[in-house]
Design a protein around this nucleic acid. Structure first.
Lengths: 218, 218
DNA sequence: GTCAAACATTTTGTATACAGGAATGTTGAT
DNA sequence: ATCAACATTCCTGTATACAAAATGTTTGAC
């Protein structure tokens, strides 16, 4: 039924960090967490180790583990890499995508369109995710797919924000259509370029938004 | 001075796996490893967890940890992703590389040339690594650099083999020159394309070599 | 009053002890 | 002889105990 205790702790902790429940530099005390989850320190330590590997937590020897929310620079870097990874997925997918997957892509896109017309940002967000994940999968490269999913997940909280921008959903839709078209033509370069631009715009929009929001220091 | 025990174990284990000291499906018994390294099970477990995250070890719940050498399919996938990552590095580096780094690149290339003329494969291998790592760094994206370094390291044992092929060093050199030229012109697409091809060829050569070597099953 | 040193406290890192599940071997029946 | 059920044993996962290091506090000297 349930997996290892350490894994459940890992998931919960990850959620708590991504949700922003834990502040940025906040210290993650092992015994406190252990008590909070009602387990011993051992599974907590395991979870922390993995979070370090995932980049969510920084560990200083003999000092402890600290939440490590990405700063502006790292966010830009993550969006840049995301754009490159997705471009690569599109490049491969252009020659490898199946007809069924192309249909699924179009279907997802139509659901996106419906969400735009209903002005349903949540719905759009969900279907957009489906759209992108199909392309990851259709890269035909399991490793690339994994890496893309990993970073996608990491960027989730930040990507969501930029949909609030006026007209962003509509623009995003147009970009989707261009991507599908390029994939249909099996034009690897065009597909890669379209997806790269699509994601890069997300990064820029987010950056813009963050700049307007924050008056606090970096 | 010395880091955590668990980290040294991690490094040693990683080395042993990459060196092929441990067979593919080989089981990694915790107590055996603990005795071998003269420590308790705790740091060994930590190291194993991290190796799982790194993809070198597979863990089945309540069953144990097993060495997970990549099969032919995964190797191809890794080389493909490596090519894409390096292409991305080149793309960014084209506009971000410093003049000093360009000089270093040319210098490394000259040392490569010297190694070719001396027919010194080991020397070439080393300088080639320097060459590539400069480009990773000059992508100006720390995350991308890290990812590239990670996969580079993972592919190390497999990349080395293909240098044995007749004329490969000379061909590789020519490709290096093309890369440097594109970077000098700040031509992002050309640089990306050149590096992608350069790495892809490595993958193909390796694949070719593996096919001729192995009569054993996959 | 301030600075420094020693001590106490807290917390990480490691070792060991304990519990439950999986695999293997044995025994009995058909 | 083969198969199945059971018992034993081994190993993983978790808890706890111990050691060392770092931080904070108190006390004493200047």
């Amino acid at each position: 039924m349930d997996q290892k205790l350490a894994d459940t702790i890992l998931n919960e902790l990850e959620e708590l960090i991504l949700d922003g429940t834990f502040e940025n530099g906040e210290r993650l005390d092992e015994v406190t967490l252990a008590k909070r989850f009602g387990v011993s320190r051992t599974p907590v330590r395991e979870a922390l180790q993995k979070l370090v590997l995932a980049g969510l937590v920084e560990q200083q020897p003999r000092r402890g583990a600290f939440v490590r929310q990405p700063g502006p620079v790292e966010l830009i870097e993550m969006f840049e890499v995301m754009a490159e990874l997705e471009a690569s997925c599109a490049r491969f997918a252009a020659s490898r995508i199946s007809d069924e997957a192309l249909d699924e892509l179009r279907a997802a896109n139509q659901r996106c369109q419906a969400a735009v017309e209903a002005n349903d940002a949540d719905r759009y967000y969900e279907e957009n995710e489906v759209f992108h994940k199909i392309i990851y999968r259709q890269s035909g490269n399991g490793l690339l797919e994994q890496e893309a999913l990993r970073l996608h997940r990491r960027l989730k909280p930040f990507r969501r924000v930029q949909l609030r921008l006026r007209g962003r959903m509509r623009q995003s839709m147009a970009e989707h259509l261009e991507i599908v078209e390029a994939l249909t033509r099996a034009d690897a370069n065009a597909a890669a370029e379209a997806l790269r631009a699509h994601v890069a715009v997300q990064g820029e929009k987010f950056h813009h938004l963050a700049a307007t929001f924050k008056t606090s220091a970096a």
